[in-house]
Amino acid sequence: MFKHLLVPTDGSTMSIETRDRAITFAQETGAKLTFFHVKPEFPIALYGEGALVDPTTPQQFSELADQQAKSILDACMDKAKTAGVACDSRSQTSSSVHGAIVAAANEVGADLIFMASHGRRGLSSLLLGSETHKVLTHSTIPVLVFRQPQ
């Protein structure tokens, strides 16, 4: 059925639980996994009275984001390889998390996006939005949303 899953991950607890479920799913179906991490773009500082100054340079920020992505993706790869699941990984810098996820799924030829729902509800969901919801809205391939039972 599904042979290539894109698994977006941000290193959060929910994302790690979703990674583990995706690995189990891949073991059962013989699917390949591609782990994907979206790195943030350098924050644009607002100048003027009362503005906060970030002492990090764009290069330092990029290096830290690369290190974080490598750490998160290496952990995913190690876990999948230990389970005997074929996998690879990639990361991309983007200000549009959902857009990067949808584009990555298409680029790698995934036939399913397997991702977490962080479970925001009510006003926080309305104000913050949901990357998962945006992926569901914009993806042309199936999206499996894993929610941790409460």
Rank of each mutant, 00 (worst) to 15 (best):
A69H: 01
Q60N: 14
D78S: 13
L73M: 05
P55L: 14
S94V: 04
S62W: 04
H138R: 10
D66Y: 07
S15Y: 00
Q68D: 10
M77F: 09
D10E: 12
Q27V: 07
V143C: 10
G119Q: 07
L127I: 15
A86D: 13
L46N: 09
G50A: 15
S94L: 04
C76Q: 02
A65Y: 06
L33F: 04
K70W: 10
D66C: 10
E107I: 04
D54M: 15
Q67V: 09
A75N: 08
G109D: 07
S95A: 13
A65E: 05
L136W: 05
V38I: 10
S91N: 01
G109K: 08
G99M: 02
T29H: 15
D111R: 03
I16R: 03
S94K: 03
G11L: 04
S71H: 15
I16K: 06
S71T: 15
P58K: 11
Q68G: 06
S91C: 06
I72A: 02
A103Y: 01
K39Y: 12
K32N: 14
R147S: 11
H118F: 04
H98R: 09
L64H: 13
P55G: 12
V102R: 01
P149C: 09
V53A: 14
V145E: 04
V135F: 00
T132N: 03
D88F: 07
C76A: 06
D88W: 07
H37Q: 07
H37A: 02
L6S: 02
P149F: 09
A69D: 01
A116G: 05
P149V: 09
M14P: 03
V7L: 06
V145L: 10
T34R: 00
G30D: 13
T9L: 02
A75Y: 04
F61Q: 03
A75V: 03
D88A: 10
